[in-house]
Amino acid sequence: MKIAETVTFAGANLDRAADWRADSAAHIADSDVIALWRGKPLVAGDALVRLRHDHPALSDARDMRLLLARSGGRAIFAADLSDWTPAGPDVAHLDSFSDQTEQAHPAVPQATFVELRSAMTRLSREDAELAATARSLFHWHAIHGFCANCGAASVATQAGWQRDCAACGRHHFPRTDPVVIMLITHQNSVLVGRSPGWPEGMYSLLAGFVEPGETLEAAVRREVFEEAGVTVGAVSYLASQPWAFPASLMCGMRGEATSTAITIDPAEIEDARWVTREEMADVFAGQHHDIKPARPGAIAHFLLENWLSDTLD
């Protein structure tokens, strides 16, 4: 797919400065720092806020600094302010589709912490990739504080790209979970479904995690049959998207259905249906009577939009 890397969170070609990770402290004084609070990046307008390493707001940050990239010879770090408590925080919707709350730190009054899914389409490619990388890495550290081999506490090393266990000597690295997301078509129609808890009326492409020992193609056929009872023949790869919710690699695939009868697995999805190209055009125009499109910025939206415009190949 010629335009594969125009999907959100891709195409920035960040210089990730792996050669600086071992001695990242030497580069902190000449750096920019982006800040996150409970996975939400600090944003002003359409851009990430870049702070000096000694900015007063960073006094509320945890000790670890993630080295994300190098730009113009300067390091770009990320800091986690999740231990800071904003005044009267509304925590009910944090880390959800519906989180529209914004939190302002008193030391940076012109900016707010914003849910990344809400901000992702207005950020530049570089800013979106930086925010997604930081969000995934901070989440990994939050849930991997102990060695999976011996159970002892581990420590962050390599500027946040590794955790080491002093007790048994094991090294642990950030994980990315591969997920197939499938544009399944039959003649003039595409298969879409919805999961419980999604915004009312929102339908998207079917998706599922790749299992150990499984190819992407096999995962497509298995997931579509398990979720919707539809069999799939030819499968091909289209594009990928790092998805920092919390840490997946969405592998966009195309498949040709060899059956059309739908039998959903209610444990996986609550509905699935075939939608014609003409209907999907109405969905994207906001004129369909009961279907709303996948979230802009998500790879499902990207694939469906390009299917409608015949720009998949």
Score class of each variant (00 low, 15 high):
Pro106Tyr: 12
Asp80Ile: 04
Gly88His: 13
Pro109Ser: 14
Ser98Asn: 09
Gln103Thr: 01
Ser98Leu: 10
Ala104Glu: 08
Val91Ile: 15
Gln103Ser: 06
Ala92Gln: 13
Phe97Glu: 11
Asp90Gly: 05
Thr85Cys: 07
Phe97Asp: 13
Ala107Gln: 11
Arg74Ala: 13
Asp83Arg: 14
Ala79Tyr: 01
Val91Gly: 06
Val108Thr: 13
His105Ala: 04
Asp95Cys: 01
Ser71Ile: 06
Glu102Met: 11
Leu81Asn: 04
Ala79His: 01
Ala104Cys: 14
Asp95Ser: 06
Trp84Ile: 10
Phe97His: 14
Ser82Asn: 08
Phe97Trp: 15
Thr101Asp: 14
His93Pro: 00
Gly88Pro: 00
Pro109Ala: 14
Pro89Trp: 10
Ser98Glu: 12
Ser98Ile: 06
Ala107Arg: 09
Ser98Thr: 09
Asp90Tyr: 05
Ala75Tyr: 04
Ala107Trp: 01
Glu102Ile: 08
Asp99Val: 04
Pro106Leu: 12
Ser71Arg: 14
Gln100Thr: 15
Val91Ala: 15
Phe97Thr: 07
Pro109Lys: 14
Phe77Ser: 04
Gly72Ser: 07
Asp83Trp: 04
Ala79Thr: 03
Pro109Cys: 13
Leu81Ala: 05
Glu102Phe: 01
Asp80Gln: 03
Asp80His: 01
Gly73Cys: 08
Asp99Trp: 02
Phe77Leu: 13
Pro109Gln: 14
Gln100Trp: 09
Val91Ser: 14
Gln100Glu: 14
Ala87Val: 15
Ser96His: 03
Gly72Thr: 11
Ser71His: 11
Asp80Ser: 02
Thr101Ala: 12
Gly72Leu: 09
Leu94Lys: 00
Ala87Thr: 15
Pro86Met: 09
Ala78Met: 01
Ala79Glu: 01
Ser82Gln: 11
Ala78Gly: 02
Gln103Trp: 12
Phe97Gln: 06
Thr101Met: 08
